[in-house]
Amino acid sequence: MSYLKIDHVDKRFQRGAATTEVLKDINLVIDKGEYVSVIGHSGCGKSTLLNIIAGLTPVSAGAVLLEGKEVNSPGPERAVVFQNHSLLPWLTVYDNVALAVNKVFGGQKSKAERHDWIMHNLDLVQMAHARDKRPAEISGGMKQRVGIARGLAMEPKILLLDEPFGALDALTRAHLQDSIMQIHAALGNTMIMITHDVDEAVLLSDRIVMMTNGPSARIGEVLDVRLERPRKRLDLVADRSYIAAREAVLKFLYERHRFVEAA
């Protein structure tokens, strides 16, 4: 049985009399422990796809199945790392993670265990030192680290990342990508990441799902990235299969599915 199955999913948005079809017949099977990236031009509906998996947006047709059970509402087993971190500004770094941990594990773990678990997750993203700071007092990269810690702390079956590094500068982004790779290697989480950065997709993913342009976006191609893990950014620069994978994605995005309106 597949771990996560996206089965013939359509999504239409109704606005008055007008109907826009955003996603058309999306089929995808994801295995446990896989790192899958979804890439496509802006407006192709990749964030909608993530929100559907998260349960934040209902499907118009088809279904999302996690371990054979249909999911149609949000829940902590499909934790989301939001694009703009979405930390609650009135809570400290520690309390932001604690909000999630206390809700998800309130009945199962003792207070001391929960504290240890919060600190463990902050350590994982190297943010334990800033536990008493508020989001306004830390940098964008640090906020996103805390967002990732909050997602991981829910011990999700699938971690959904919605352009997690999109708003960060290149150096910070590289640091966080390395952190994510380490975490993925250590924990073996299943992760789905939305991105529009080709290098990021190739570096991090086991498979890259390429979306055609909307409206009625479909899955155009799925590329297997056969690169040994652990991957090192510098070693990959001249790696044959890395270059080939990069080229395949670039060709898909810029030759066959050029975003006409944006040009």
Binding site: L56, S73, G75, V80, F82, S86, L88, L99, A100, K103
Partner: peptide, 25 residues
Amino acid sequence: QDYRNVAQVLRLNQIEFFFKIMVPS
């Protein structure tokens, strides 16, 4: 909407949402 999404993912109930998200926000 971000805060509402966070609350939904965490499955906060109405009372938790009121005290933990609504009032502070």
